[in-house]
């Protein structure tokens, strides 16, 4: 694409308009997190007096009050981390394995299976959640984090991404060379294929981690004991608490603790993430 045809306005004006509009949307995206950050540093008393754009000094005090309060935030943090790490590792490893099976081997029913996984890809988990909860109850896994981890082994979206990636980045000659060297199929996958998938793996680990970290619907239905809850469930609990009697400093620091870890990861890895969004979707 060399040039677009010139519209009525001169390029300089159009560029200026573009920057102004982009500036507005940048502001719209960031202002909420800026206020969050500021308010997380202010005490409840300061906040009732009005809003200022400058931070205060109470951030550690707010954090301590929260940790020593009624909501088990530290435990929630650990629970969220455990669920997200375990499910993203399982999700990525087994999705790559599934994609490798479809990509590498020519077996009966392969096309039908590939079409089937593609067809179920968009069906949301919410439509089966009723049966899922009953199953979890029957398996005596209610109020545990296991049902939040194991199902991520079957993740059609991640599979789809790996399959696209393998189709263009994985030469079959490599697999054949490994066979001639006497490497077993399973060992080939683990020691030769997986390292080659590193770029795809890092993108998908992040997406899977974030998806799991942010997940609220299913954990809210499965986790009942306070000490087992993940962060989104605790946030909902905070929302349900007696609002007027609550220390707003604690509210803001809790929201900040749920949001900022993901923002930090994102800022370090945004190059890969933004590039990874399009790879799983259609191209024109």
């Amino acid at each position: 694409m060399e040039t677009h045809a010139s519209s009525g306005l001169p390029v300089g004006t159009r560029r200026a308009i573009a920057y102004v509009v982009l500036g507005i949307f940048t502001f719209l995206c960031l202002i909420w997190f800026y206020i969050l950050l500021i308010n997380a540093t202010r005490s409840h008393a300061e906040m009732t007096r009005g809003f200022t754009m400058l931070p205060s000094t109470h951030i550690f005090e707010n954090w301590e009050n929260l940790v020593n309060g009624t909501i088990p935030i530290a435990k929630g943090f650990v629970n969220s981390l455990t669920v997200s790490v375990c499910s993203s590792v399982l999700c990525v490893y087994f999705s790559a394995m599934t994609a490798y099976a479809i990509n590498t081997y020519r077996f009966k029913g392969r096309d039908a299976i590939a079409a089937f996984i593609l067809a179920i890809m968009m069906i949301p988990g919410q439509v089966t959640v009723l049966g899922f909860i009953q199953l979890i109850n029957n398996m005596k896994l209610d109020d545990t984090i296991i049902p939040l981890i194991i199902p991520s082994i079957a993740s059609p979206v991640t599979y789809f991404y790996f399959r696209q990636y393998m189709a263009s980045n994985l030469p079959m000659s490599l697999v054949e060379a490994a066979r001639i060297d006497g490497s077993g199929e399973f060992r080939t996958f683990n020691t030769i294929i997986m390292p080659l998938l590193k770029p795809a793996i890092s993108v998908q680990v992040i997406f899977s981690f974030v998806g799991s970290w942010n997940n609220y619907f299913t954990p809210a239905l499965i986790l009942h004991t306070d000490s087992k809850k993940t962060l989104p469930v605790l946030i909902a609990q905070l929302r349900g608490a007696d609002w007027l009697r609550f220390d707003m400093g604690q509210v803001y620091i809790m929201i900040a603790a749920s949001i900022f870890p993901v923002i930090l990861i994102y800022l370090f890895l945004s190059k890969y993430i933004v590039g990874g969004i399009t790879s799983g979707a259609v191209k024109g």
Partner: peptide, 18 residues
Amino acid sequence: KTVIYMPNLIMASAFSML
């Protein structure tokens, strides 16, 4: 691009609470 994509990764429940 980094800025406008960021809200997509935010925990929806925390964003709503905010």
